[in-house]
Design a protein around this nucleic acid. Structure first.
Lengths: 143, 143
DNA sequence: CATATTAATGCATCATGTTGCAAATAGTTA
DNA sequence: TAACTATTTGCAACATGATGCATTAATATG
């Protein structure tokens, strides 16, 4: 698990300025590295610490963190977007149930198999690959 | 390739009424079964034939066609949503380049491998599984 | 074919996400 | 540490998407 300071260095290294909003955002993601956060959660957290912070700043900062692969965006059916801290983790993929919205982390072996197939059959780049699977988990399947 | 009439029967079988908007939508997807359509394209097409049709009707009908697995929604980075006719096709998955937005259809062998891994390792239901991969295609990869 | 029943539509409104631009601020340099 | 410059922010406006409800239209029934 990376610390706040390390992530600030990542920002600087990518010529991104360290602003109060960004500090709070990073700390929030670090403190919740084991789960994904909803947009309302993120907004509430920032509003608390920076009253009056603008919606567009939040969106733009989330975009930036996504671009630096510090967080990943997940789309959960009927539950909007969620954001997960993924910085320097080997496995960045998720499996999301279309029925109940349950988000599971992919297991390493599965990821490796998919990666291999994707590379062999479709010539898709391994690095920076992020994959999310939508299907029906065992509890929600009907038949 | 299914015909218009067959799809109307699918709607009726699912207790969905056949309205002018739905007829035009289905015909549009049939006529363009080999490619995905953008929302502006769909809207323009319907506006032409049903002047004054409401945005929300279009969204609701697209939702319905998705729910019946007649079409599938694809999210292309910086290019919005696209809709692809997928009714009764064995392979409903796509591979999308995050850099150029290129959408390719997944090859059968790849799909089968992923499906197997997903079933074995994650106990995810095979039927109704729809998967979209986002990564970098060979033309866009940097390193 | 007239009427009843139920679902789809249009409309209004709200929620969410995007963008151009002027003002504010972080990082840089003297 | 004051001034410079480049990026980020807030703001306003707009685009897109979702929703409750009255009206309209598709289907079922007599």
């Amino acid at each position: 698990m990376r610390k706040h300071k390390d992530l600030l260095a990542v920002l600087r290294h990518n010529r991104q300025r360290v602003t109060p909003a960004r500090r709070f955002l990073l700390q929030l993601f670090i403190d919740n590295h084991s789960r994904s956060l909803s947009l309302p959660e993120i907004q509430a957290h920032l509003q608390d610490r920076l009253p009056g912070i603008n919606r567009s700043s939040i969106y733009r900062n989330l975009e930036m963190l996504k671009a630096l692969s510090i967080i990943q965006e997940l789309r959960v059916v009927r539950k909007g977007r969620r954001y997960q801290f993924v910085f320097e983790r080997p496995v960045h993929h998720f499996i999301i149930c279309k029925a109940c919205g349950k988000v599971s982390k992919g297991k390493r072996g599965f990821f490796e198999q998919v990666e291999r197939s994707l590379q062999d059959i479709h010539d898709f780049k391994k690095a920076n690959l992020s994959v999310t699977f939508y299907g029906f988990c065992s509890r929600c399947r009907v038949g």
